[in-house]
Design a protein around this nucleic acid. Sequence first.
DNA 1: CCGGTCTGTCACCAATCGGTGAGTAACAGC
DNA 2: GCTGTTACTCACCGATTGGTGACAGACCGG
Lengths: 219, 219
Amino acid sequence: MLNESTVAVLEQTGAAEPEKRIRDRSATERAILKAAKNLLAEEGFQNFGINAVARRAGCDKQLIYRYYGGLDGLVEAIGADLGNWVKDRIPEDTGGMFLLTYGDLMERLSLLFLEALRDDPLMRRIVAWEISENTEQVRRLSEARSKALGLWLDRMRGSLTPPKGIDTAAVNALIFASIQHLVLSAAAGGQCAGLVLKNGKDWEKAAGALKRLVRGVYG
Amino acid sequence: MLNESTVAVLEQTGAAEPEKRIRDRSATERAILKAAKNLLAEEGFQNFGINAVARRAGCDKQLIYRYYGGLDGLVEAIGADLGNWVKDRIPEDTGGMFLLTYGDLMERLSLLFLEALRDDPLMRRIVAWEISENTEQVRRLSEARSKALGLWLDRMRGSLTPPKGIDTAAVNALIFASIQHLVLSAAAGGQCAGLVLKNGKDWEKAAGALKRLVRGVYG
DNA sequence: CCGGTCTGTCACCAATCGGTGAGTAACAGC
DNA sequence: GCTGTTACTCACCGATTGGTGACAGACCGG
């Protein structure tokens, strides 16, 4: 599977004939998983298939069937990583701020989520996948993602009490929906509903509007 | 191309052998366009191809090349219809309400847009397509759609002046983004960010949250 | 050393894809 | 009636897809 050592050997000898690969199952498994994630992140779910993954991993597709039980298992393995997404991509601390009110919290979380999503092409593709297809594959991914997100939200909320008289579940769903669609739309076409989103200045305006929206409803 | 008259004939005679089709170019063109729209609405853009459209239209794919210049032209023809979407799917009147403030207006438009999108599977697929791919095809569709939406917004605004000190373009983009993502996510998996969206009651809660969001920022 | 298991490769399958060139049947004008 | 155009069908192309069975070589326990 063309792992680093093999490449090194090839470069040293300059040999064109197929040097034997290293027999290392776990390394191959990791290479396949990595290839799958990169492929999904870069090319999207349109051309995400057994052949494409095997090609990118530099190994035979048979190994994907053997080690992951096919594409479904591979997707599931990707989903398993998703549980750590929040921990990996979103800073834990509050940025030195004191979050006194629920509004403080939601403003902070919204902006964090916006940035994290903007910086993670794989997660963007997965979100786009979720709203485009409804297969078992995608449903599993979606479940893992929303579960992780929910846990994060709960954990960050801590002992802060949500405001009375507001359906925070519905409102928060709308807020996060707006962030996701904004980021996805921008990533796809550089704009969202006519609003250009390309350079940093554009995103500052969007972040400002997001703050206003959150503050408007949560004070 | 199995237009209505042919089907009628087949049903009358019960003949299985290929009764000759009626030679009617414009009817065939319409049948192809209709088939394409239905296919896209029902199956999504995943399996949207020349072969599938021709199969559904009941004619040879060659005709699609001849009459529309291929899939691109066909998609463009679909996009041409999009200009009339607002007019066809969204009621003109204000529902007997008096829209005195910008907040009144945006609340009304948001709810109208939410319902219209919820009722139109084709438009949902197109929106999902927009954020999943970035081909020339999709870009054209996207352009037509956002243009029509912008015109509608302008027209409905009338002489109402937007509030000072608020970046209405950015805020409205976020509001419409939230609506789109909510509806798409619900259509795909029956929920959005953990918020279940299946029966009418669920949607009433969502609409209430949307009102709150709009009123929060626009008063 | 021998036999079996593990890792990886290869060749092949039917099905489908987008695309094209040739052919056929119905019609219109003369 | 004959001719040319229009509407339409069919057969085929190469490429790619997901999927499988057979095989080769490295490794390990005996």
